[in-house]
Design a protein around this nucleic acid. Structure first.
Lengths: 216, 216
DNA sequence: TAGATTGTTAATCGATTAACAATC
DNA sequence: TAGATTGTTAATCGATTAACAATC
């Protein structure tokens, strides 16, 4: 607690990557690893590994290193992956459907409990183990169910109205796939953006400027 | 040129966002905007806007501000969106399919020219205006077509082998949806990652630590 | 001309890296 | 004990913000 309220976003965004590499080592039955060892396979500096981990506590042991299994579990706890935050899918189009089928939410601290759509062809159908309901039922659903987060997979032009409803329903946490900047209008929300087109444009920039990049 | 070979990643990753807001202003027929005006609607500092834009040249005019249309076009050029980089889709499962249907690659500097799959049910089918071929045809396809980039939408365990083949075929640019760190093994590649699970875990962390976040 | 706003330099702030004493 | 490796402090580096002279 005392430590954790000043962790920078830079550190936080590196945590899932640590978790990924530690899980892999764990699967390979590696029992211990030094900051240097971890840094080598992750292509970062050992200093950074130690600094990052020490934001949360001293998980290592001088002269020995870190226990892979223990460190993995620590990071799992730090990330809060043991939670079961209840989430709804807003928009069960191509992208929403793919994301739901692609990921194991339970392993990432979430439980998907419902989906909402405008398209009449999709309403009433199922996706994994959730039912797709009409978006008009959003309010009545939220009366009965606790909803901690919304996964926004609707086009930009629909976001404004839907977001207002979700906000009024008390939802403050969003996984946002739309090209819309939620936190500009709603500063008191927690938003993680997956801006696919921003990412692709960045790739385009870098391809266009490879020469410059290689010079470094 | 002289300026552009020292642009930091922080600046580059902000460019698509500028582009997005400028496109919106342009659609709304706004003709001019000051750094302060743009900063306000984007929730950043005016200083940052001016610093960022000046990495590429003086697009503004003292006492007036920036011409929305001109600035939009400048950033479009800087990003290289006028290109038509030829890309292949590796993996036409849920995610690959959704991404292709969801985005207009042409507007982002790319042209999708082919897709590859293992699943026999999908081979021979089409997706938008591309044909899905067997992944065994990758090599012969690349002999006939110039391929600038690959969009990787295959599961982690298939990446290693496929990546080696793509690398051998001369492909060095990747849009990577798999949980695999390409640049660790291939340092001379240009990789943009879309790590969905990393993003969701970050959301989980932030939801778990909202109190701390609000204190700031 | 006077007011507005840029481009750019200087100051501040934060993040990364290096170094090393503590200690297993 | 000696060697290894952490936790942590100090030094460096980079990115953001502030300030202001240049100028439209």
């Amino acid at each position: 607690m005392s430590k954790s309220d000043s962790i920078s976003m830079s550190v936080i965004r590196r945590l899932p990557r640590y978790y990924r590499f530690l899980s892999e080592l764990d699967e390979q039955n590696v029992k211990r690893i030094s900051s240097t060892g971890l840094a080598d396979i992750m292509n970062v500096t050992a200093s950074q590994v130690r600094q990052d981990l020490n934001c949360f506590g001293g998980f290592g042991q001088q002269g020995y290193g870190y226990s892979v299994g223990q460190l993995k579990k620590e990071i799992q706890n730090i990330l809060g992956l043991n939670h079961s935050y209840q989430a709804v899918l807003i928009g069960a189009g191509n992208l929403g459907t793919a994301v739901v089928k692609h990921l194991d939410f339970q392993k990432m601290g979430f439980r998907l409990i419902g989906g909402f759509e405008i398209d009449p062809d999709k309403i009433g159908g199922t996706l994994g183990d959730i039912v797709i309901s009409s978006e008009t039922e959003l309010e009545s659903f939220c009366e009965v169910n606790r909803v901690d987060a919304a996964f926004l997979c609707i086009p930009k032009q629909s976001v404004d109205g839907t977001l207002e409803r979700l906000y009024r329903l008390g939802i403050r946490c969003f996984w946002n796939f739309s090209h819309y900047d939620i936190s500009v209008k709603y500063p008191d929300t927690v938003v993680e953006n997956v801006h696919l087109s921003d990412s692709l444009m960045t790739l385009c920039y870098r391809m266009t400027n490879i020469a410059a990049e290689n010079k470094i």
